[in-house]
Structures are given as structure tokens and as C-alpha cells.
Amino acid sequence: MAFALTQEREQQVQEILTRYPDSRAALLPVLWLCQKQHGWISPEVITFVAERLNLSTATIKGVVTFYTMFFEEPVAPNVVWVCRTLSCDLRGAKCIQEHLERRFRCRPGETSEDGKFTLLKAECLAACGQAPMVQINERYFENLDTATLDKIIDEHANNTPRSAHEG
């Protein structure tokens, strides 16, 4: 199924293109818009972006694979990133990860049994003073303990797939 941006997002693309002397610079912003709408960077998205910005699909794949935040496979409606770098580990990030693994019954890189959460490990997210922390979708949750985390996860459990409520 071919992919296309909504009319509103297409207008955003046009505004974004005015910001740079070279349209290629719009690549990351446009990929972001696509991922917001579609949930991940599918082959159809790549084809669309290639045509829209007049770049080869190989170029775009090369860029997409470089950055950890572009998903090359579909993900659950909620993506949970657990920071595991030093400052967070010193404040118990390992406990946070283990707790989520038990609750989701999955390992980092996988999706929970109920299909609602994808669990990922992250490198330092610039919240070291508020460790331990997780990022869920676009938001940070800081100074965590497992009880608070459980509440936060409960509140996210009913999120619908991104594509459904974003598109």
C-alpha cells in the first residue's frame, strides 16, 4: 500500500523546505513526520520520501539505519526506553529494566506479550540527575521506583497504535 502524508503534514513539509538552502536537509524532519503518522519507517515510507525529496531509496535507507530513533520495523503503540548508562545504573536502572522485563514478559528489543509495549535499552538520555528514568514515546519519566513505574505503565496500557490516533 502506497504511503502518503496527510494534507496537513504535507503543508508542514513545504514550510520545512523553506528553512534550508538544500532540500536534502529536510530529510530528518520529513522522516520524523512520516514516523509520527505511520509509526515506523516502512519500505513504502522510504519510497515516498525518496520521491518527495528527489533522493535515492538507498540514500534514505543509509540515513534511516544510522539513527536509533527511526524504527525499521513496526513497534507497539508504546515504546519504552530504559536508560542504562552509568548515572542511571548507579541509581538502580537495572532494577527498572528487570521489573519491566517481568511485567512485559519480554527482553529488550522485543514487544510485550499483550502487544502494547516495545521494550528498548537506551544510552544516556540527558536526565542523569533524575535517575533512574525511562522515556515512553516522547516523554520522560524520571526519579522512578518500581511502584511509580507500574502506575505509569498502567496509564499507557490503553494507548491505541500510533498510526490510529496520530493519522
Binding site: N78, Q130, I136, N137, E138, R139, Y140, F141, E142, N143, L144, D145, T148, K151, I152, E155, H156, N158, N159, T160, R162, H165, E166
Partner: peptide
């Protein structure tokens, strides 16, 4: 996103 609930208060003072 519907994740708009306010964050938990910081657990540390």
C-alpha cells in the same frame, strides 16, 4: 499521543 497525564512528583526531594 494520549500520554498526557502529569508526571509523578519527584521521588527524591
Amino acid at each position: 499521543m494520549s500520554d498526557s497525564e502529569p508526571p509523578k512528583p519527584p521521588s527524591a526531594v
